[in-house]
Design a protein around this nucleic acid. Structure first.
Length: 856
RNA sequence: GCCCGAGUGGCGGAAUGGCAGACGCGACGGACUCAAAAUCCGUUGUCCGAAAGGGCGUGUGGGUUCGAGUCCCACCUCGGGCACCA
């Protein structure tokens, strides 16, 4: 667990040996030189970062290499953080050496919960601690020797940066989605359509006949950013609402691990669902791994089916089904407890039962819903709805296995063909009519005689099989006949056509993706550039008033609650600042009083567009100059998505950041601000650095640094502990600070070690004792060229022989191929092989010193 | 349950269908040292053998092929994602 290494030279013969001390001297000298000479400053084609006198652009292809930028935590970097940064650095340097104009820099995703919580504890403003943390990160990353353009480093908490985050929000707020053209357009063009009558107002009145506040009501229903009274994830422990994507599978908050409750609240939403199809389809344009693409497709969850309307005393009840062909088997309906029609459908005789069931369902967190998920629960409303296909009444139930958040929040239950419906029917003794004749093998498999008596069936049947009892002859003039068909897709098609013709349904598509809950009741985030007028309508601030800076306060904390207090209500810190909230403005119709929005944006906002700001970080007139964006991100041809050439980061952002950033990028593309359809053309997921973590007998982690090993067993303070492997970090108490490695061996050894451990996309366990191997390599390389006694180039170097020259050229070829393909581990192995050969030769022939050093 | 991905020495890992284990760590032996550390040289898949040499070896079982770690089928194990999604 301790770092061995830097043994200082003890004899004069070794005074100039390559040690950690010498490595530091060399590294620091070059890092200063790079800064002084702007070595890694990359020119833009136009604008303030253009450099007409530079030869870095002429005749070269551009290459934009990007890392997922870090959150600058208070504990600084550990050796697990920079794995991807080193990979992109090595690759970027290789591409630069082989003729590309490479853009590579690093920024900071610096809004977020930890800085705010630290501020609450210490009373120090998060802006101060954030600035300190960013400075620490910059220093640690510089020491690593990364070839970054320092002029382009941005921080999302900088008002000069979030001015444009707010501007983009305004753009999104002031646009709508044209479903005919399949793209976002400025809201002014919607107003134009209403004005000239090409689009009708909801109640058919002339646009000019609507009062100003009525017009705003109409427009607000079209905006891509909108306020909605909708079910949201309320997290009392954090005192804020969170997005669907931030809720873990067991119904807890991604941050803090507190219970999350479904509550209906007024919140900001982003209409990401309008982009669902494009977010799926355009995955085909991207060089991403199949697994990440699959995760995005799964998350969006597109499924094709039909909407079917069931008539009831409370009006039509719409359901979504992927199996319209099974409509003849629908023997009851189920509504989610939150469904708006439940009250109207419930008979007085059943009202007490329904009310009690809904109360229980409402206070149940998703955790609780999962615990007792095996037995179905539910309650009868007393009402019946009419199955449109055969005109038969079926009972309407309420049950929490139907989710308000998917489809229409109501289902037709087909117990013979759906396992959940089957279980529910069994639980409550509801009829299970058979509508397909399962094959004999199916009955054999379950050890029963073939029969359409479903009371003998152990489970629902799902699959292609001949339809039975699926005809409405005698009920309608225009009959539908599925009996005899045995193909699900044929039967679906026929049913959809019939539903369409009878006006009681239609083929449709449903998505798991929900609109993005965009507001948070916290302090350390971007304020919304929004004010509310006397009628309660939202207006964006004029661009001239941006940035809207966070108001100073000592009270950073939102009100938090008992984590299980589902009925508590959010209280934003900005709410308390009356002097800031009430404001007089002239938005074009004279000075008036307005109320500011007191929410802040989620941490994802800043990371939705940072790659664009890297391109043009000092531009005060636009978020990015179109010509600059075109140069760095423009599509290569009509079938190319455009975007960053290589994006490297961890897989944990597969649905959150990557989905949100793609959405914003597409809106900005639609509005004509960008030439690229996608932000990140090629994505590479690096692995994680794992490290041994140790737990004592109370199951608490102990500092891995203080654990002693003897004969394969481990002790801490003399007490036995158990070992496990996990992602390196503070929570497992197994972080290794890079500074220790720098001191013992130098940054180049650390860089080599991290690249040599294995392929970049694989996770690998950190072994401090292995680091010395790369140190020895560099030391031998040094010794093959430099006299350890004098520090001068050796005078006794051997001449170049044929065998060595052949090996050199094989190495050059292999290293070039490996570097191109980001196989850094095998490139390093080939360099070590060459160097081992030179060691046997007695030194490095002068003729090959140049190529060897360049490759290293 | 569904969708991805991976199984190779003591460890991290390497191998366009063509000598399995490159490279590194560790271990063992040696040099240097009063000694240790560091550094250097050598050996190191496993079994038989003093050696030369030979047998066996890439999770398991089959298959394709002149030839399989690599391709195909089935299974086992592990990791990741999703999951009452109608």
């Amino acid at each position: 667990m301790t770092t061995t290494g830097d043994s200082q030279p003890t004899t004069e013969q070794h005074e100039h040996r390559y040690t950690g001390t010498l490595a530091r001297t060399i590294e620091l000298r070059w890092q200063d030189w790079w800064d002084q000479h702007g070595t890694f400053e990359t020119p833009n084609p136009v604008g303030p970062l253009a450099d007409p006198n530079s030869d870095r652009m002429a005749g070269k292809q551009k290459l934009f290499v990007l890392d997922m930028f870090p959150y600058p935590s208070g504990t600084g970097l550990h050796v697990g953080h920079p794995l991807g940064f080193i990979g992109t650095d090595v690759w970027g340097r290789f591409k630069r050496m082989t003729g590309f104009n490479v853009l590579h820099t690093m920024g900071f995703d610096s809004f977020g919960l930890p800085a705010e919580q630290y501020a609450v504890q210490t009373g120090q403003h998060p802006a101060i601690t954030t600035a300190q943390n960013v400075a620490t990160y910059r220093r640690q990353l510089r020491r690593l020797g990364l070839a970054h353009d320092p002029r382009r480093s941005v921080s999302t908490t900088d008002p000069a940066y979030y001015r444009w985050t707010q501007w983009i929000f305004s753009q999104i707020f002031n646009s709508w989605y044209d479903t005919d053209l399949q793209r976002a357009r400025p809201i002014a063009e919607l107003i134009q359509q209403f004005t000239d009558g090409t689009r009708l107002t909801p109640d058919g009145r002339d646009w000019s006949a609507l009062r100003p506040d009525e017009r705003l009501d109409v427009l607000d229903t079209h905006r891509l950013a909108y306020i909605s009274e909708a079910p949201v994830n309320w997290c009392p422990g954090l005192g804020t609402v969170v997005a669907n994507e931030e809720v873990t599978p067991d119904g807890r908050s991604d941050r803090g691990n507190f219970p999350v409750f479904k509550r209906t609240m007024r919140q900001w939403m982003m209409r990401i669902t309008t982009y669902a199809d494009r977010l799926i389809d355009d995955l085909d344009l991207l060089e991403w791994s199949d697994s990440i693409k699959a995760m995005q497709r799964n998350w969006i969850g597109r499924s094709e089916g039909a909407r079917v309307d069931f008539a009831s005393s409370a009006g039509p009840i719409a359901v979504f089904t992927t199996r319209p062909d099974t409509l003849f088997g629908a023997s009851f309906m189920v509504l989610a407890p939150e469904h708006p029609l439940v009250d109207a459908l419930t008979l007085p005789t059943h009202a007490d039962d329904v009310a009690e069931y809904r109360r229980q369902a409402g206070t149940k967190s998703d955790v609780a819903r999962q615990v007792d998920d095996l037995t179905k629960t539910g309650v009868f409303t007393g009402s019946y709805a009419v199955n449109p296909i055969n005109d038969l009444p079926i009972p309407v139930w309420v049950a929490d296995y139907v989710l308000m958040g998917y489809g229409t929040g109501a289902i037709m239950a087909v117990p013979c063909g759906d396992q959940r419906d089957f279980e529910f029917a069994r639980q409550f003794n509801l009829p299970v009519p058979a509508i397909q004749q399962p094959p004999d093998e199916w009955f054999q498999l379950h050890g029963i005689q073939p029969s359409l008596d479903t009371s003998t069936w152990p489970q629902a049947f799902v699959g292609d099989a001949p339809y039975v009892n699926s005809s409405n002859a005698g009920t309608f003039a225009d009959i539908i006949e599925l009996n005899g068909l045995s193909s699900i897709s044929d039967a679906k098609q026929r049913t959809n056509d019939w539903l369409q013709a009878h006006g009681c349904g239609a083929a449709t598509v449903s998505y798991k993706l929900r609109d993005w809950l965009f507001s948070r009741q916290r302090y350390w985030g971007e304020p919304f550039p929004i004010v509310y007028d006397q009628t309660g309508h939202a207006h964006t601030l004029p661009d001239a008033l941006l940035p809207l800076e966070l108001p100073p306060t000592d009270s950073f904390s939102p009100r938090t609650f008992d984590p299980d207090d589902a009925m508590s209500n959010p209280e934003s810190p900005l709410d308390r600042l009356d002097w800031w909230v009430d404001v007089e403005l002239d938005l074009g119709d004279g000075p008036q009083r307005y109320r500011r929005d007191t929410n802040v944006m989620p941490q994802w906002a800043g990371s939705c567009w940072y790659e664009l700001r890297y391109l043009d970080p000092t531009n005060e007139n636009r978020f990015v100059d179109p010509a600059v964006e075109q140069y760095w991100m423009g599509p290569k041809d009509a079938n190319h998505s455009g975007g960053v050439d290589l994006y490297v980061g961890g897989v944990e952002h597969a649905v959150l950041h990557l989905l949100y950033a793609r959405f914003w990028h597409k809106v900005l593309f639609d509005l004509g601000h960008l030439s690229s359809k996608e932000p990140y053309h090629r994505l590479f997921n690096q692995g994680y650095i794992l490290a041994a973590a140790f737990k004592d007998k109370r199951e608490m982690y102990v500092e891995a640094d203080d654990v002693a090993e003897r004969d394969g067993s481990f002790t801490h303070d003399g007490n036995p502990v158990t070992r496990e492997w996990g992602k390196m970090g503070k929570s497992l108490k197994n972080a290794v600070a890079p500074d220790d490695i720098y001191d013992a061996y130098g940054a180049d050894t650390l860089r080599l070690y991290e690249m040599a451990m294995g392929p970049l996309d694989a996770s690998r366990p950190w072994e401090t004792r292995d680091v010395v191997g790369m140190y020895r390599f560099l030391q031998r390389l040094w010794r093959n060229l430099v006299d350890e006694a004098t520090g001068e180039l050796r005078t006794d170097l051997p001449p170049l022989d044929d065998q060595t020259e052949r090996l050199l050229h094989r190495t050059i070829d292999g290293v070039r191929n490996d570097m191109e393909a980001m196989r850094f581990n095998t490139a390093i192995a080939k360099l070590i092989e060459l160097n081992n050969h030179l060691t046997k030769l007695g030194g490095c022939p002068v003729d090959i010193a140049g190529p060897l050093v360049l490759m290293v």
